[in-house]
């Protein structure tokens, strides 16, 4: 589920242990349909996609589904992820064992290490190996987060890890960094285009099949900003404005980034990518929409589900970009119809 956030972590972990990691192919129609058939119908799109992926596995020795309870102090992840290993068990093809472990940072790093050691026994690895693997994994994760913050997109960052795995020396991380560092300029920001921020769960924004290539479509039309471009400190700072802290780490990230984009004058519009039935989004979206309305920031919600009608999304996207462009060109804060369209503007 959190492939787009923590893949490098586990990749580093298993790489260091000398275990070969097979990733499923990118989502396609077959995977999606298999997932829809097998998954419980009430659940959300990302889980359905995951179930599809699980069914597609062939010829592997085991499937690894970690249970992410919490990735930082005082927060949780979504309940569906807490119950993930059990709820998708039925989808794993018969004969393939499922490996799982609890990641619970609420109880501190030490207990996580213990959990990993227990996991190591299952894999037949010694404690020393696990410790080494863990520090390697953290190194990869930090590196990845750094790359993302610098504006690299997911494929670019991952490809540099793939190189390491092929060449099989851990020290290459640093080198890979230097080698590809120049690529950064390949997406120059153009001033005459509007800047649009896309916020939403990573398993939606980067899942190119289920969001109908929204990222690429947006990039063609506008300068794109995503959640990962916002610094962690900024997210924490935005978070302080809330009376009660949000207790889902992912939702917290989305809210923090979204809210900082709301107050960021360089950003011309915000798109919230959600999926039908997402529990955390239903609340966070409402808070963000409210804040956007107060500061007169164009805001659009796209809700994804199993429908693959691309035209609908394209139309909405175009309309949104058109609206922003028009707003940039002839900026008046007056409504064209003489009627008060949002709650804070007055009719002069």
């Amino acid at each position: 589920m959190y492939y787009y956030d923590y893949y490098p972590f586990w990749a580093g972990f298993f790489y260091s242990l000398g275990i070969e990691l097979v990733t499923s192919s990118p989502t396609n129609r077959g995977i999606m349909e298999a997932g829809l058939k097998k998954a419980s119908d009430d659940t959300c799109l990302p889980i359905k996609v995951l179930v599809g992926h699980l069914q597609a596995f062939k010829g592997v020795d085991a499937v690894f589904i970690p249970r992410l309870v919490s990735v930082e102090q005082k927060t949780y992840l979504c309940p569906k992820i807490l119950g993930l290993p059990e709820s998708v068990l039925g989808a794993v093809p018969e004969g393939i064992p499922v490996l799982t472990l609890n990641v619970n940072m609420r109880e501190g790093r030490r207990s996580f290490l213990k959990e990993l050691e227990k996991f190591g026994v299952q894999l037949g690895k010694s404690r020393g190996q696990i410790h080494q693997a863990l520090s390697e994994a953290y190194k990869w994760l930090r590196h990845y987060e750094y790359l993302r913050k610098e504006g690299w997109d997911f494929e670019e960052s991952i490809s540099c890890f793939d190189q390491i795995m092929d060449k099989s020396t851990g020290d290459r991380i640093k080198k890979a960094d230097n080698n590809t560092g120049t690529d950064e300029l390949s997406y120059p920001e153009q001033d005459n285009r509007p800047t649009i921020a896309l916020v939403g769960h990573s398993y939606l924004t980067y899942e190119n099949y289920s969001n109908m290539n929204l990222l690429q479509k947006l990039k063609q039309k506008a300068n794109l900003k995503v959640i990962e471009n916002v610094k962690l400190e900024e997210i924490e700072a935005q978070h302080m404005s809330l009376r009660k802290k949000i207790f889902w780490s992912h939702a917290k990230k989305i809210f923090g980034a979204g809210n900082s984009y709301v107050s960021n004058l360089e950003v011309d519009g915000i798109i919230y990518l959600s999926c039908f039935g997402c529990g955390t989004d239903s609340l966070i979206n409402d808070i963000l929409a409210r804040n956007a309305r107060i500061s007169h920031k164009p805001y659009m919600v796209i809700t994804l589900d199993e429908h693959t009608g691309e035209a609908g999304v394209v139309t909405r996207l175009e309309a949104f970009v058109d609206m922003i462009e028009r707003r940039l060109n002839n900026e008046t804060n007056l409504s064209s119809y003489g009627e008060c369209l949002d709650r804070n503007s007055s009719i002069v």
Partner: peptide, 18 residues
């Protein structure tokens, strides 16, 4: 019985068939 989109119960619902 669960309300639509209730997260914890959806997890339960997908385990109950077993």
């Amino acid at each position: 019985i669960l309300p639509l989109t209730c997260m914890p119960e959806i997890v339960a619902a997908s385990i109950l068939p077993r």
